[in-house]
Design a binder for these strands. Structure first.
Length: 510
DNA sequence: AGTCCAGCATTTGCTGTGGA
DNA sequence: TCCACAGCAAATGCTGGACT
């Protein structure tokens, strides 16, 4: 077979591309550490346009081993370059003008910033970064964000052709890598399709074989870096339940299977703690997976992109992680805030650095009272430290935590989380590209019964609470029945951008 | 055969308590 | 005010009897 020239690599997956291995075909020996590897990751960022989301991204990088991260859907308005506190470099290309679509980018690890040869932003969906590696070779990394499957086939075809020609244009680089969101559906591998790795484009989802044609025309190979890792565990669970419902199988049985450990959300940990999800449970248990001669351990929890995902959906340990992350973030601005006299400036700094770290991914939490009080407690402790007081002094001066809040001018973390949830709910329900998260949010199970016992708080409970109220177009709750609009379910209301904004009880001015 | 409801089992998570 | 702990209220499904 031909020598692989294109691979997409992701955390814990893919193959090392090193200078040492480039000339000959010897297998990497010994050390499982990948010190010479180039780790190329890809992230569909949703947005990194604002200062706040950029610092959220910056904080979520801690603990992730990467060299280059290809970004898609950054939605930046202009071409932006900036350097993070740790020296990492962020490059953002502009989005589609007039629309909130696209925008690509790169994050380059501090140790590689001096190796950047150049970069080009070709379109809001395509960019190239060129790096020097070793003494004489170089690598071109393409970040791509393909049109989603509801775009016309001509549009998608044109994009893939453009990727192929840009790839061709980077010929002088010894290594070329395409990474990003290709928006192709995959199925099992077909006979003879050796370029595609274990998976292949789904003939039903992609009749024109976009991925396969790209691989053939560029003579490249596809690595096993599909979206499995990024699939939310909850979505996995819903997948199984939904499948059971479709097949008219008893949901109870499906749930029993889940709890018996034949669940699909098995994550496997490799020797250095990196998690890889396995989809074995959906089909059937496959053979043990070995890496560097060791059988991988299965686990029901793993950390993906800085947040912990658990099989049972509990977030206790994630709350502790958030607490640590918030204190770490606070530590990095402490030197500055301790010197700042201006309370407004100080609170702005805190809200843009510490609050996002504390509330990272909180839009996907169910908000029970215990979660709320834990977050409040943690935030108050940070707040006291910020304004230089402690419980003892407060007690002596008879000051309450609301007095402290008046002095610190910080944003209330619960309000912040609730707004994030509201925004996220609207985003999920307005998506129409057939994702599981949208499907299961609206899915009503005809014969699903909640188990006996007090039902746990659900994700949507805190939203249903206010969103089922009668509404008017102006967003005011009216008493008079003549002005009142007919009742609409919150999922319907969330689809209407304008109405949903008005119904946000935590929005501006309320 | 279907509906309603009290009583039971079960589970979550809220509240009160006491020490720091 | 925080934290750990214990006890218990609340909310749910299930069951079986009374009633239509």
């Amino acid at each position: 077979t031909a020598r692989p020239r294109c691979r997409t690599a992701q955390r814990g997956q893919g193959h090392p591309i090193t200078e040492q291995h480039s000339g000959h075909h010897t297998k990497p020996t010994g050390t499982p550490r990948h010190d010479n590897d180039l780790r190329i990751c890809t992230l569909n960022a949703r947005t990194v346009a604002s200062e706040c989301s950029q610092s959220t991204l910056e904080h979520s990088l801690t603990g992730i081993r990467y060299d280059v991260i290809c970004l898609q859907e950054t939605k930046s308005r202009t071409l932006t370059e900036r350097t993070f506190d740790d020296g990492a470099k962020l490059i953002l290309g502009p989005k589609v003008e007039g629309k909130n679509i696209g925008g690509i980018g790169f994050i380059i690890h501090p140790r590689l910033t001096s190796s950047i040869i150049s970069f080009s932003v070709i379109s809001p969906r395509l960019g190239v970064l060129r790096l020097r590696i070793g003494r004489s070779s170089s690598i071109a990394i393409l970040t791509v964000y393909a049109p989603t499957s509801n775009a016309t086939i001509e549009e998608r075809q044109a994009f893939f052709n453009e990727v192929a020609s840009v790839y061709e244009g980077e010929k002088k680089h010894f290594y070329r890598v395409i990474a990003g969101d290709l928006n192709v559906r995959v199925g099992p591998r077909r006979d003879g399709a050796f370029r595609t790795g274990p998976f292949h484009t789904d003939p039903q989802g992609d009749p024109d074989d976009l991925l396969f044609n790209l691989l053939s025309s560029t003579r490249s190979f596809h690595g096993n870096s599909l979206s499995f890792v990024s699939r939310d565990i909850k979505e996995h669970r819903s997948t199984v339940l939904l499948r059971a419902a479709e097949a008219r199988r008893s949901l109870k049985k499906a749930k029993q299977e889940l709890s018996k450990g034949r669940s699909p959300m098995e994550a496997v940990l490799d020797s250095d703690g990196t998690a890889i999800t396995s989809r074995a449970g959906i089909e059937e248990r496959g053979p043990d997976i070995a890496l560097h001669g060791e059988t991988l351990v299965e686990t029901d929890a793993y950390v993906y992109l800085g947040r912990e995902l658990r099989g049972d959906g509990s977030i206790d340990t994630e709350l502790k992680r958030r607490k640590r992350a918030a204190w770490a973030a606070y530590g990095s601005i402490r030197e500055v805030t301790s010197m700042l006299k201006d309370a407004k400036l100080r609170s702005a700094l805190f809200d843009s650095h510490v609050l996002p770290a504390l509330c990272y991914a909180a839009e996907s939490w169910p908000l029970s009272n215990s979660v709320i009080s834990y977050m409040q407690t943690t935030h108050r402790a940070l707040e006291r430290s910020l304004i230089g007081t402690n419980l003892y002094t407060m007690h002596q001066k008879k000051r309450s935590s609301s007095d402290v809040r008046r002095q610190s001018l910080l944003t209330d973390p619960i309000r912040y989380i609730k707004r994030a949830k509201h925004r996220w709910a609207g985003h999920v329900l307005r998506r129409d590209d057939g994702r599981w998260s949208t499907t299961v949010t609206e899915w009503f199970a005809p014969d699903l019964r909640r188990p006996p016992g007090k039902p746990p708080v659900r994700w949507r409970d805190s939203i249903v609470e206010y969103a089922k109220m009668p509404y008017s177009v102006q967003g005011r709750i009216t008493r008079s029945s003549s002005q009142r609009q007919p009742y609409r379910h919150w999922t319907t209301r969330a689809r209407d951008r304008e109405e949903w904004r008005n119904c946000d009880p935590y929005g501006n001015g309320r």
